[in-house]
Design a protein around this nucleic acid. Sequence first.
DNA 1: GACCTTCTCACCTACGTGTTAAGC
DNA 2: TCGCTTAACACGTAGGTGAGAAGG
Lengths: 205, 205
Amino acid sequence: EPTVGGGASRGGREREVNVALDDRELWVRFQTLTNEMIVTKNGRRMFPVVKVTASGLDPTAMYTVLLEFVQVDSHRWKYVNGEWVPGGKAEVPPSNAIYIHPESPNFGAHWMKEPISFAKVKLTNKTNGNGQIMLNSLHKYEPRVHLVKVGTDLRRIMTYPFPETQFIAVTAYQNEEVTSLKIKYNPFAKAFLDAKERPEGYYQR
Amino acid sequence: EPTVGGGASRGGREREVNVALDDRELWVRFQTLTNEMIVTKNGRRMFPVVKVTASGLDPTAMYTVLLEFVQVDSHRWKYVNGEWVPGGKAEVPPSNAIYIHPESPNFGAHWMKEPISFAKVKLTNKTNGNGQIMLNSLHKYEPRVHLVKVGTDLRRIMTYPFPETQFIAVTAYQNEEVTSLKIKYNPFAKAFLDAKERPEGYYQR
DNA sequence: GACCTTCTCACCTACGTGTTAAGC
DNA sequence: TCGCTTAACACGTAGGTGAGAAGG
């Protein structure tokens, strides 16, 4: 199996576990513009969606899959004159921003049979009922996927960082090019899409 | 803990596991009329929904929860002059009609922390992609819930039958009183509900 | 004032209902 | 004809979008 994505599996006698990011081209387009993700009181989904393909797991072992949001630098960001620039010191990261994939725990075979999608994770800027991830607005984050084998010690957690998916949390979009890309590819934003601007093969009705 | 519902747990040294049916009053109203459930090519949800409350599980052990549909007698049924009457011999039951609860496998603590709902099971009369349950139209079924402790042998499956939830599979409703009760209580059928006929406390907007 | 956040809104996606007419 | 099944349909539920005005 070729190694794709941010694989960082541990060695030993086991076969190599690999976790690759899906829709990488789309993520890179956002990354080029500096990606932004909306946070709201009640929680907002991500677009694009973090979706990964796993291989090399033990089919009969049980795993829990996590999505963590790591604050990647130590400052607040500001959008000035069409550019993101680092500002003052960062605020304290809210206590661990970790989302448990709702199909957890499950067998290795389950996680490998189709891509693992984090479509339903919701980002918020308020402390809410659980399931939602609290982030500091105007701070930069990197999503990381963790695989935890149930019953094993925490030192054996496998971590897969995805730098392509970094984004700045915002309460309103700053860069209008980011807004346009979101509208262009997110079906839920179709109301704002001019007919002439639709991407090729765009699902209609 | 009082014993409620169709509990049929096994003895031994373990504490008593109990599984009780939720919304029993509603189920009994349908049962009195002889309940019917629609089957379609693409699968139809059940209404009412099979929903159970479990207790006495080992919080740290892993369980898979199943919903089985057992053909309860050996004839086809006909609706004649406002009555269901047994007809010819039954058709062969389609190979095991067992739905795996989508949160399976999971810890005992998970199954006990809130009622276990089978809202998303879909009944069909055609062989389809998995996840859907194929039943013979005009045959009578009884839903049964099974708890399977992961890794233990199959002789230790715990089975909980719910006779109140028996129904005849149909491709179109036969008894119009059944239709009326469905419309009265299923929010998705609100389009067919006259304002004056709404049950007390019915959710509006 | 400038910056950031919140709220309501129209407009979508996605899909669960029984009805009805047509099909077999 | 009769009994049963299918498919299209209008009308709901449920909830995901960015826009834009209002709030702090």
